[in-house]
Design a protein around this nucleic acid. Sequence first.
DNA 1: ATTACGAGTGAACAATTGTTCATATGTTTG
DNA 2: CAAACATATGAACAATTGTTCACTCGTAAT
Lengths: 117, 117
Amino acid sequence: MPEIDTCEISFIDENKVKAVQRNIPLEGTVNQLSVIFKLMGDPTRLKIILALSMEELCVCDIALLLGLTRSAISHQLRLLRGPRLVKFRRAGKLVYYSLDDQHVKHLLKDGLEHLSD
Amino acid sequence: MPEIDTCEISFIDENKVKAVQRNIPLEGTVNQLSVIFKLMGDPTRLKIILALSMEELCVCDIALLLGLTRSAISHQLRLLRGPRLVKFRRAGKLVYYSLDDQHVKHLLKDGLEHLSD
DNA sequence: ATTACGAGTGAACAATTGTTCATATGTTTG
DNA sequence: CAAACATATGAACAATTGTTCACTCGTAAT
């Protein structure tokens, strides 16, 4: 038998919902924010970020560190460059990457603290 | 012609790499951490988390708030329950969800700050 | 007990993602 | 310029993911 899986009755608590609705960031902001978290949500990229939180490193060394090809690392660094999680500088044939700002470190710290509660 | 895409030469800067290698968290910790970030990296789940950072809400109201089915929300909340990002309590037929601890709020704050730099 | 309804679950599908392979850039050195 | 090498990129593939659909579970009320 057909069944509609949406709440036919209105809100359980309309006031709360309306208040939340007003205070949720704009769609665009939420999406940008989710991009940041999604990028940090892959083990390979997270290791890259953790490594860069300690030392500025070139692509080749990151690849060796993680046991992946330079190509794979390059692809991931490209993604991280987009929303400015990492920055880079050229030094001859090498390209050195580092974290772009301090917030990323804070995210790492808060995340690690959550794990040990 | 066949080509091997791994650094045949050793590390560019072996000391730095070794130091980083020693200080990177254990594989398991990195994975757990990446799970947290990945969960926050989906717009739907992030909106749920943002909503719950303001108010305790039942599944039905979250579904209405986001314009998705209760089933979809239920699936996502199940994922968020795993690593204890959210907790819940029953109240009759309703189940109310809220953030499990304060670290998640900090993660939201740091992330939003990163966006406005 | 039966009905009603909010919440949870499993299967399935389209869409997205991470890596590899092959090739292209760009820079330094001969 | 040509060769060597670090990095970047595009296409393609398998693997993962988010939502929907259909159904079940749990609680409350008649």
